[in-house]
Amino acid sequence: MSVRRFTPDGLPQPAPYHHVAVGTGTRHVHVSGQVARRADGARVADDLAGQVAHALRNTATGLAGAGATFDDVVRLTFYVTKWAPEKIHEFMAGVEEVAAELGLPAPMPPSSLIGVEHLFEPDVLVEVEATAITD
């Protein structure tokens, strides 16, 4: 396997994600920000949990197109509009909704959740980027 994820002693545990990933391989896969839209551009969900779930589905589709899976992911970045700590339960509900379906490891790959004022369209609540390494 080209990716090893772990959380070293001295970093907060447990967390819903590993703090460190080491990738060894020569083929890097970068999936651009994915949102809760179908291939035809139609919006899928209005709530944060639903948008997180579908954005992760689209991320999985992007990874698969490059011959990768979430097992190959070294980093996920989530951008969430008008973030507040009390939204974490709804956010994680979206992750949990699709984790088994998509083979999303638990804990997840190293991840960042970045609060932003808004994204490229007013109805987009979350965007997900992924970086993977395969051999």
Rank of each mutant, 00 (worst) to 15 (best):
M1D: 15
S2M: 10
S2R: 12
V3F: 02
R4G: 00
F6E: 14
F6N: 12
P8L: 11
P8T: 13
D9K: 08
D9I: 04
G10P: 09
G10K: 01
G10F: 11
P12N: 08
P16T: 14
Y17L: 13
Y17W: 09
Y17K: 11
H18F: 12
G23K: 05
G23I: 09
T26C: 00
H28K: 14
H28M: 14
V31T: 10
S32Q: 00
S32L: 12
S32C: 05
G33Y: 13
Q34T: 15
Q34D: 06
V35W: 00
A36I: 03
A36S: 13
D40Y: 04
G41W: 09
G41Q: 08
R43F: 01
A45S: 14
A45W: 00
D47T: 09
D47I: 06
D47E: 11
D47S: 00
L48C: 08
L48N: 01
G50F: 03
G50D: 00
G50R: 09
V52W: 01
V52A: 00
A53D: 02
H54D: 00
A55F: 10
L56E: 09
N58D: 02
T61L: 13
G62C: 03
G62H: 07
L63Q: 06
G65V: 15
A66M: 11
A66P: 05
G67R: 01
A68M: 09
A68C: 05
T69E: 02
F70G: 06
F70M: 04
F70H: 12
F70C: 04
D71V: 08
D71S: 13
D72C: 10
V74L: 13
V74D: 07
L76C: 01
L76K: 12
F78W: 10
Y79A: 04
T81S: 08
T81G: 01
K82I: 00
W83S: 04
W83Q: 00
A84D: 12
E86H: 12
K87L: 15
K87I: 04
H89C: 00
E90Q: 14
E90R: 14
F91S: 02
M92Y: 05
A93C: 03
A93F: 07
G94C: 09
G94E: 07
E96Q: 12
E96N: 13
E97K: 13
V98C: 00
V98P: 05
A99Y: 11
E101I: 14
L104S: 03
A106I: 13
M108E: 07
M108P: 06
P109Y: 02
P109K: 07
P110Y: 14
S111N: 08
S112C: 08
I114H: 07
I114K: 03
V116Q: 04
E117Q: 14
P122T: 07
D123T: 05
L125H: 05
E127K: 08
V128D: 04
V128T: 02
E129M: 06
E129Y: 02
A130W: 11
T131A: 09
A132Q: 12
A132V: 01
D135V: 11
